[in-house]
Every structure is written in C-alpha cells, then in structure tokens.
Design a protein around this nucleic acid. Structure first.
Length: 570
RNA sequence: CGGCGAUUAGCGCAGUUUGGUAGCGCACUUGGUUUGGGUCCAAGGGGUCGCAGGUUCAAAUCCUGCAUCGCCGACCA
C-alpha cells in the first residue's frame, strides 16, 4: 500500500473525550472514528488490525475443530420469547419492529438463533459433537458506553457454540477451547490470565474468563501469590482469617456516639480499630416461596465491602438485591442507618465468615446515637447464620489453601462457559441417541471480544510515541520510509525496488510516498506502530545500504539492500 | 436511572460575567523556503456559534424548553 493511495487519518491533538490511552491512540493513529455514543467507524488502519485479530481467532478455532457460520444480527423476537430472555434481558436488549409491526431484536448474543438452527438441522447423535462459530457484530445497548471500542454498544465478537450428548464430550470440547484460547492470546502477544468465573444460576461445571492485565481494566482479579488460582473478585471466595474468634477480653458496654454515623468517624473519634467494627446492611428479604417480603440484615466487618453477587444468591435475600430505604429502616428497626447492629436486632441476620470470628467488636445499638462496644458472639448474643458475603481484599488467605491474594485489574477479552441444557431444554434442542431415545443436548459457549482485544493490546503495548504492535496484530508489518524521495531519483528507485521485493516476499508493506518532511513521516509511522521501518536515504545508499529500525526495541541496524528481505524474515 | 458539566471552523479551544453582527492554534489550499525527527514566511478557503422559542433597536452572550455528548455515581451505614 502506498500512503498516497491510503487514508492515514492521523491526528496531532488528542480528542478531549478520549480518556484511556488505547482510545486516545486509536483516535490519533486514525484507526477509529466515533459515529455516535458507543458506535464507531473503523478506518483502514483500524480495520487491518481487526482483521488480523479475526484471522488468528479463525485459524485457532478451525484447528480446534470448530466450523465457521454466519448468523443474522437481526433476530425474531419469538425465539427470545421461547428462551425466556425477551423478559429477562432488560433494556440492554435493543428491540425493534419491522414494517409489519413484527418484533425483532438486535442480537447481543446468539444462543437462541444457534439453538433454532441446530434443532432443525441435527436429529441424530451421529451428527455430534458439533462446534459452530462465527465472527460477527453484536449490539448491546449499554447504559454507559465508554473507553472507545473497549465498551461500545456495537462490537465484534467471535462466538462459538458446541453441542453434545454427554457431559464428558462437553468437557473435552471445553478443554480444547480453553487451549485454543490460550493459543489465540499467546499468538496475539498479550499478557493474559485465565480466571475462574461465575457458573451461576445457569449451572454447569465450569466457566473461565480470559483477562488481559492492564491498570485500566474494568474488572478486579484476585490471584494467589503461590498457586495458579485466579478468580474474578466478583466471585472469589472469601475465607475467614482464623478458625475461631479470640476469647473476649472486655465487657460489652453501651457508648454514646452522637456524631458517629460511619465506620470512619467511629474509628477516628473513639480509636476503635476498623477490624474491630461491624457494619449492618439492611436489604429486602425473600420468603420461602421466593417472594419479596420483609427485611434481612447482612453484616460485614467495617473495613470490608459487601459482595452483591454473593448476597443476591442467598435464599433469604430477595432477588434482585435491593437496599432498604432509610424510611424503611426506621420503620422496622427504630433507628437510622449509622446506628445499626446485631444486638437486639428485630429481624433475621446473616453474618460474613470474618464477622463470625471477630471478637470484642463495636456495632450500632439500633438506637440513634449509641453503639455497643466489645460485642462477642456466644457470650452477648447467639451466633446467627454465617455466609460468604464480602469481596476479597489484597492480603486475604487464598481460598485454594495456598498463599495470599493479590488483586490486579483486568480487561475481559474471552469467556468460555459450560451452558448445560438451559437453552436446549427451553428451546427443545435434541436428537435421538444410540438407544433411539430423544435427548436434549448439552451445550457450551465460547466468546472472544475481537474489537475489545484491539484496545486491550494497545493498553499493553504503547510508549510516548504511540502504539507498539505485536507482529501478529500490526496493520502493516513493514514501512518503507524514503528520505526526500522527490529530490533523489536514487532513493526513489531503491524504495520502489524494496517495495516490490517485500510485497513479493509476502509482507504487508506500507510505502510512505508522501512528499512530507522526514520528521512527519517518522512520527506518523511510530504513532501507528508499524513494527519494522526501512529508512531509504542518500546517507546510506553510497554503501548500498538502508537502515532497519525496530519499533518495539528501538534497535537500528544498517543492512545492504540485498539483505533486507532476509533480515526481516529472520 | 440520578448528579454535574459541555455544545463556537475538520480537531483542540478563547469570546458569554458587562448584548453591538466571531477569533486563536493545529489541520486544509496556493506560492516560496527548508529537507534524516512534527521547518519557516506569506496569501487564502472554511462557522445559520447544537436545535426551537422568547426578551431586545440589536443575542454566541440574557430567559425557557428540547437534543446530543461527556464525567461521576448507582456498596451507603
């Protein structure tokens, strides 16, 4: 490609709404342009990178035995009604009608469509297992799109769906996909970690997310410092720091705390250690039929945070988790938030595992302006129901039994999931098995955020001059940069010769034939992040040489014109 | 969905307090200059000041409504 025939679209200035580095650099390097909130045009340089990512994903999927298909982005609503997600999905699902007022959705994912396809086309166990994938545009009407293509509304995803008649067969495919994902992210040169993810209400045996490690990541990941254990903080199990509480050392006393409405002021005004405080959160409760009725108290240590996902799964907690209003709290307990505690609490409570092993702790007295100090379970009140309620913290014991947890930020770029029979039961996806009986299929699904990977890779690969693409993702592998070509026939001749030679050798080459000053060209090419630059100038031509510059290492080497291709191939 | 803020040339911004018919830098065009790291000089083109109403002799500027975009929050005891 000659830059005179190309749309470089680089910018000197950073658009004001680009917050994170990948968004800034994608704008400046001329890769994307925003059309509307969460919607982006991919300009030539960006599209080239996107295609490289797709190609790696495609190759590894094929190698792992998956078969490519393409499903429509617009999907009939009746499929979503059949799966129940027409009701369950919420406003993220964009719904629309055609000219006949028939309901459709813009697909945020494709379980329904693939189920419909497979139930029509597959009728015998002999056709299984089957693993079908596509690389396609998805639409999720995000509450708040941000960070450029990192969290956009329209995005490109590689999604695969596998179908099995036995759990063992699903396990095999799942493991193959796990390995394929590792290959894909390794080939793309990303620093990533597979982490244990939610198996949740859908059931199944396993789910893993693949995270690219980056400070700008939206997810927090907990790692053991001495094993392979890694889990999203949303679901990392929090275990108590000790087997049982230390013995009580002081009498429980009621203290007037007129201004202490928060753990922070309690700590500051009364010198109580935050680890010796307990906070009481009131949420709507569920009755035995699962209906919303009354309230339940959740207790976590003052310096800990409630994990809403964990709390939401408790039978006694109404789903979705909703906090009681101050008025509701006053009506039920007779004291305001800030003065709540377990002593004389008129409603059921569930306490975190760590709270259960805390002794001599302070908590509200359920009376405005008073706290009890030195509360001890067993002595002062009976031990209530105990559960894992909190987010893990750096330094906690790892739930795997080895080492302690460290917390890092991650960008979720892949997610693999054992779906089980959720969709095949709802949508009646089945075959006749070996004994001639109908059987619903066991499913797995496997997603990769293709467009998000582009942004994630930049988060990990950039410097003050711009992007430093890994070879596998670069929009061009090599750039020919002629110095003042319009003044030197010799420079032009060599540049043209190298351009033809490198293209012949199978390289993606950008030939920067603009009549620009050298500094402008260097700056643009470094911003775009092309891994190899061939500088053709009068300076080296007398010796029959050109300069090779490596974008990632910064290393410069002078090589003879004849050796350029061999050098770049090495 | 709640709070805050923004909207003036392709991009980044000033001008709004105190109303008087729009400016700067970058980018773009032309000519010259320069040429191995974002040259310099000169001359140009480009804006119904987000939209709709209102006040006024006069509105980018004041008032009302709307739209779009962005940031923060949606764990607080």
């Amino acid at each position: 490609m000659r830059s005179s025939n190309y749309l470089l679209a680089t910018l000197k200035e950073t658009p004001s709404d680009a917050e994170i580095i990948s968004h800034q650099l994608m704008m400046r390097a001329g890769m994307v342009r925003k059309l509307a909130s969460g919607l982006y045009n991919w300009t030539p340089t960006g599209l080239r990178v996107l295609r490289k990512v797709e190609q790696v994903a495609r190759e590894e999927m094929e190698r792992a035995g998956a078969i490519e298909i393409l499903m429509p982005m617009v999907q009939p609503a009746d499929l979503w009604q059949e799966s129940g997600r027409w009701q369950d999905y919420g406003p993220e699902l964009l719904r629309l009608q055609d000219r006949h007022q028939r309901d459709f959705v813009l697909g945020p994912t494709h379980e329904e469509v693939i189920s419909e396809l497979v139930r029509k086309e597959v009728s015998s166990y002999k056709q299984l297992p089957l693993n079908l994938y596509q690389i396609q545009t998805k639409f999720r009407d995000e509450i708040r799109p941000r960070f450029g293509v990192m969290r956009s509304r329209e995005f490109i995803m590689k999604d695969a769906y596998s179908f099995h008649t036995s759990e063992q067969c699903l396990q095999d495919t799942y493991q193959r996909m796990y390995a394929a994902y590792q290959n894909i992210f390794n080939r793309l040169g990303l620093e990533f970690r597979p982490v244990i993810a939610d198996t949740g209400s859908i059931g199944g045996n396993a789910s893993h997310e693949f995270h690219v490690l980056a400070d700008s990541g939206e997810d927090a990941i907990a790692f053991s410092d001495s094993s392979d254990y890694a889990a999203n903080v949303e679901l990392a199990e929090a275990i108590a720091s000790k087997a049982e509480a230390d013995p009580a050392t002081a009498e429980m006393t009621k203290v007037a705390t007129p201004d202490a409405k928060t753990i922070k002021t309690l700590v500051e005004q009364f010198g109580v250690a935050a680890e010796k405080t307990v906070k009481t959160l009131i949420v709507h409760a569920a009755n035995e039929a699962g209906e919303r009725e009354g309230f339940v108290a959740l207790l976590v240590r003052g310096d800990h945070e409630l994990n809403e996902i964990k709390a939401n799964k408790l039978a006694k907690v109404a789903s979705p988790l909703t906090f009681a209003s101050e008025a509701e709290i006053r009506a039920v307990i007779g004291a305001g938030p800030g003065s709540l505690g377990p002593v004389n609490l008129p409603i059921d409570m569930i306490i975190d595992r760590e709270v259960a092993v805390t002794s001599d702790f302070a908590a509200g007295a359920n009376e405005d302006g008073f706290h009890w100090f030195n509360i001890n379970w067993g002595r002062d009140l009976a031990m209530p129901e105990v559960a894992d309620l909190r987010n893990v913290k750096a330094g906690d014991l790892s739930p795997c039994g080895q080492g302690r947890l460290d917390i890092k930020r991650g960008i979720e770029v892949g997610h693999i999931f054992q779906l089980g029979t959720k969709y095949s039961d709802m949508m009646k996806v089945g075959v006749l098995n070996e004994s001639g009986k109908h059987q619903n299929l066991i499913m797995g699904c496997y997603g990769i955020g293709v467009s998000r990977i582009v942004a994630a890779a930049i988060e990990q690969n950039h410097d003050e001059y711009g992007i430093k693409w890994p070879n596998s993702m670069a929009p061009f592998q090599v750039c020919i940069l002629p110095m003042n070509m319009h003044k030197s026939a010799r420079v032009q001749e060599v540049a043209e010769q190298l351009y033809a030679e490198l293209q012949g050798a199978g390289f993606d080459v950008l030939f920067d034939d603009r009549k620009e000053r050298p500094g402008v060209m260097f700056a643009d090419i470094e911003l775009i992040g092309i891994p190899h630059v061939v500088v053709v100038g009068e300076r080296n031509l007398d010796e029959g040489c050109v300069e090779l510059k490596n974008r990632r290492s910064g290393e410069k080497t002078t090589v003879s014109i004849a050796d350029v291709v061999a050098h770049l191939k090495a």
